[in-house]
Design a protein around this nucleic acid. Structure first.
Lengths: 218, 218
DNA sequence: TAAAATTGTTAGGTTAGTCTAATTGTTATA
DNA sequence: TATAACAATTAGACTAACCTAACAATTTTA
């Protein structure tokens, strides 16, 4: 049985290696920063996770999930996204509120609970943020999405998900009347700082490059 | 913010003091046995809970919950019973499966979650075991329990607690494979000395009246 | 390619929650 | 009421997860 902390390390590794296509490794500092701990702490845990055969790792080397480790991590991701869906669809939580509570709920362990919840929700395929929910077999449709910042000037697209899940970001997104499936047109760009003018349901607004890098589109 | 462990101690104290009418105090050994830890461990935690003003307690004395402590404990009980109801009514769990999962879910902290869950379930008053669910104000209808000796011959019940907390008695109870939530059927009685035959998970055994008077049931 | 910057590890310390063994209070009983 | 039985506490140790400070390895860059 894994501890909450061990689960969080595995989840972090999955996240870090899923972010970019073909990326399968992460570094100690990167992992530590993501989890909000010191690198020394991460090193200790990495030894433990290696001991348990959940990761591949050599001293001073890069880290990657083993098959077992990846399966565990995907299972946690599945729980996280199912709970988010539950909170959003059944309990009237808003978009930006679900993540924090799901961070706690994802650690409840009961295989029956997960399956029954999945059934109760009608076997959803995506969570409220547009991210794919891994199925009961642990299969996760990997969709490497482009970000708004990669869209050509003049082109149109549709928001499908967000990369950043912090409440601050999500609230900003909501404020702009942006949500899953909202059409976006890139009107113009500033070469100076990468900021861009975008059109959302008729209104033109200006957003930073940082913002655009966290909006995933199709 | 209380840790899971601190919450479990408060919940245990509420349980122990709710068991019997007018009982408001518990002992260190009793508490430790209930939680499955050693008395020394309980002593450490009692100091901490006293420091935080969650209990009334003096060295070598009895323990009782402070108002704050009781409120916290009732809130946990509320969450526990609401989750049990959710699992039973919405996710098709059986009555004997809900407890274990609710033990985990009761520690999720999000006031909004509790209120929304309560609303989603239609503000239920009792959980799947027939126990009262405290309302949002923390009001709990007290129901006092009967002893095994009061159960009619032929009837079935479920052990919910013990009245006697001596090691000898508790060891005897364990030996019989009796524990919290164990179903018991009263098969027959001797008018001569009040001893009774009871059935526990298929096996029929004979117990004295004294024994039966110390098993609390529902 | 040597020095500087970065990345990662080790050593030693802290806290929460647990344990065992020894000891001290309290209660019951002979 | 003295003592045996029981209940509770203290002392000292362990593990998991974290920290800081010092050091070692690797990578970058001048």
């Amino acid at each position: 049985m894994l501890s909450f902390t061990e689960e969080n390390y595995l989840k972090a590794l999955l996240h870090l290696t899923m972010e970019i296509e073909d990326k399968v490794e992460a570094g100690t500092n990167e992992l530590a920063f993501y989890l909000g701990v010191k690198p020394a702490t991460a090193t200790d845990m990495l030894k433990k996770l290696k001991e348990k055969k959940l990761i591949q790792y050599e001293k001073y080397g890069k880290i990657s999930l083993s098959d077992t480790g990846r399966n565990k991590a995907v299972e946690i991701l599945r729980k996280h996204r199912l709970w988010e869906t539950f909170l959003y669809e059944k309990l009237e939580f808003t978009w930006d509120e679900v993540h924090e509570v799901a961070e706690q709920l994802e650690h409840i362990h009961s295989p029956k609970l997960v399956d029954k919840l999945d059934k109760f929700l009608g076997y959803p395929e995506v969570d409220p943020h547009g991210d794919c929910i891994p199925n009961a077999k642990g299969e996760l449709k990997q969709s490497f999405k482009k970000t708004l910042s990669e869209v050509e000037t003049g082109a149109s697209c549709k928001m499908v998900a967000v990369k950043d899940n912090t409440a601050a970001f999500l609230q900003y997104v909501s404020q702009l009347n942006l949500g899953i499936d909202t059409p976006i047109k890139v009107v113009s760009r500033q070469a100076y700082d990468g900021s861009m003018e975008i059109m959302i349901s008729g209104a033109t607004i200006n957003v930073s490059q940082k913002f655009a890098e966290n909006i995933l589109i199709v």
